[in-house]
Design a protein around this nucleic acid. Structure first.
Lengths: 227, 227
DNA sequence: ATTAAGGCTTGTCGTATGACAAGTTTATCG
DNA sequence: CGATAAACTTGTCATACGACAAGCCTTAAT
């Protein structure tokens, strides 16, 4: 491994919440970064402990097993990402119609950019079909899918959705986060840093435009052609 | 690991090309599947050898190192994928204009569906910035990016491209293959098998429609607004 | 039939991993 | 002050890994 990617400080390490909590938080932060960058199997507990700057075996002591530690990492990451997501999405509390879906898409992409670890880990688990996949799908992915489904149905009812199936729409939405997840490749390939704020905004706007047509496009030629 | 995903037989194991070649091909097929499913670090040479049904240490014998073996796997995979890609893309040899870009997108997505291992491996390496990333970007990714860039520029010149930056377009294109890469998650989440031929066609068409506007959309309101 | 080489097999080494067990330190409270 | 538990530390084990070394078959040319 080269180096652990920087991760936003959503788990305070300085908070005076007791020594044990501080240790746990340091480990969770390092764990999220390591699981995202290396995958479950290649991210060893010893490596995570070293990255967190704590002594060997503390993961075993605090969580009992690597698997339980991983689940706690996911819960923390999802919690933090949801906070970020809502911070943007809630601005649309009074918005309706296609604008509503567009806000959702922008919020989702911004949150994905702030926590690329999530997409990384989902990609790692989503292709593997081990026990962890069922756990994370049921606990964290299903609600997101349900929300997307509802918003897309709303948009369709209003005749402002593109002609597209839910799975294609869903994977087009989550898949574009590859730009953030593959930041090293993106830097190499395009010479830009996709994690800069300006780049994030541009990407979020572009994908929102891609997924939700402008009002001006809502004409009978292209819309509501679904049988 | 649960099981290695089935992989198309682009490397014949029955060809009478000498015992050594047959052994090498069996290992390459198993290696591609394992690297895609588990990632470089978690896919051990012993596991790959077992999956290939050959004796221990034959990777070391034939390639000298795991790294050299990985590179050979990638070259084989890219070669096979390019064959599949051209089989579809070459149908557009006489096509021009926006249809040309649409053919490219469909061909790319069909090839990605047939060889989801490619996307898997790119995601694995693209986030890690180890030596292998520079190797694969320079050798295999750059040409694809250049082709996309050229086609997008052509489409723009004709005024039929969406208002979008190259990186966003590129990662929207490659990112949607997440549906195939995350086939286990997709089955769990949507109850459909994304690797079925009908599903592939639907997805490819949907994404092509998403990325390249219909001719009817080429109006001054939405087009050529780029400064 | 002998030889030699290519292809394969087995043995072993140094290192890494997750888990457990047994210790030691530190904090808290009566 | 002393005790008690929580927090941490260190030791160890069975297993797994990549690489190398040495030996063993099979084949084909002489």
């Amino acid at each position: 491994m080269t180096s652990l990617s920087p991760i936003a400080a959503f788990l305070p390490v300085t908070e005076d919440a007791g020594a044990a909590t501080r240790t746990r938080n340091k480990l969770l932060r390092a764990g999220i970064a390591a699981f995202a960058e290396l995958g479950y199997h290649a991210a060893s507990t010893r490596l995570i402990e070293t990255a967190a700057g704590v002594k060997r075996n503390l993961i075993s002591y605090h969580w009992g097993s690597k698997d339980a530690f991983w689940k706690d990492c996911i819960d923390c990451l999802v919690g933090a990402m949801m906070l970020e997501f809502r911070a943007v999405d809630d601005q649309a509390v009074n918005v309706d119609g296609p604008e509503r879906l567009r806000f959702f898409v922008r919020a989702f992409i911004r949150a994905s950019a702030k926590y690329p670890e999530m997409h990384s880990i989902m990609l790692d688990e989503g292709k593997r079909n081990e026990d962890r996949l069922a756990w994370i799908v049921e606990r964290h992915v299903e609600p997101v899918k349900a929300r997307v489904e509802q918003l897309l149905a709303d948009a369709r009812r209003m005749g402002v959705a593109r002609e597209i199936d839910l799975p294609s729409f869903y994977y087009a939405l989550v898949g574009t986060s590859a730009m953030f997840t593959m930041a090293p490749e993106c830097r190499m390939l395009f010479g830009i840093d996709p994690l800069e704020d300006a780049a994030i905004t541009r990407h979020a706007d572009a994908i929102a435009r891609l997924l939700i047509p402008d009002q001006s496009l809502a004409n009978p030629l292209t819309m509501k052609r679904r049988k």
